[in-house]
């Protein structure tokens, strides 16, 4: 491993983006938190700068921060965090970016122009977490069927009542096993049955 250290990469990012924040997780893993608006700028720097040259996108994923403990005080406590794990096959260094997208207006600029691998990863994050990637050429569901309702990896997702007339075993329940509570949103409305069989 002869690449740049995390601190050097973070300093380089700070040159193009003032809002970039170096954060360490509770267990000491460092990452750079970038506002969504600055992501194209930062990503292009990481991809193209000859000293950084992060040519490989190891992973692009996300998680819902809704129920993350110790999170209640922060203003963005219900944000969806989108995580970019970048690696340089040239210099053998790695960096992690995080973009927090607010739950209500969940959109993040796409990076698929820089890393074509993101074409699939972003579709998956859109499908399972409901993040809109602005500028993605074909942002459709990839794993769930096209007429699926809801984004399953969100923490407030309830089990669907049924799909195409076949009832679900845990109709409308919470994922932690709790039954439906007063004031829960209605269970996923059943889409009108479409033609069964092969589309």
């Amino acid at each position: 491993m002869n690449g740049m250290t995390f601190e050097a990469i973070a300093a380089r990012i700070a040159q193009v983006c003032d809002e970039a924040m170096v954060v360490r997780s509770e267990n000491g893993q460092p990452f750079v938190r970038v506002p969504a608006a600055a992501l194209p700028r930062v990503a292009a720097l990481l991809r193209r700068d000859p000293a950084l040259l992060c040519d490989a996108l190891m992973d692009l994923t996300g998680y819902d921060r809704l129920k993350y403990p110790g999170n209640e005080a922060s203003p963005a406590n219900d944000a969806i965090a989108v995580v970019y794990l970048l690696f340089s096959q040239q210099h053998h260094h790695r960096v992690m970016l995080e973009v927090q997208a607010p739950r209500a207006l969940c959109s993040v600029p796409t990076v698929s122009g820089l890393w074509p691998a993101a074409l699939y990863f972003e579709r998956e994050v859109f499908d399972l977490l409901g993040v809109q990637f602005v500028g993605h050429p074909s942002l459709e569901r990839i794993l769930c069927p096209d007429d699926w309702v809801g984004h399953p990896l969100r923490k407030d997702y309830l089990y669907p009542a049924q799909y195409h007339g076949v009832p679900h075993l845990r109709e409308g329940q919470h994922f932690d096993g709790a039954p439906r509570r007063q004031g829960d949103p209605e269970p996923t409305p059943t889409p009108a049955p479409t033609k069964k069989g092969h589309p």
Binding site: V166, G197, H198
Partner: peptide, 13 residues
């Protein structure tokens, strides 16, 4: 899976 079930039915038919 739910997505596959319709295909199984078609194959069976």
């Amino acid at each position: 899976t739910h997505k596959m079930a319709g295909v199984v039915r078609t194959l069976w038919e």
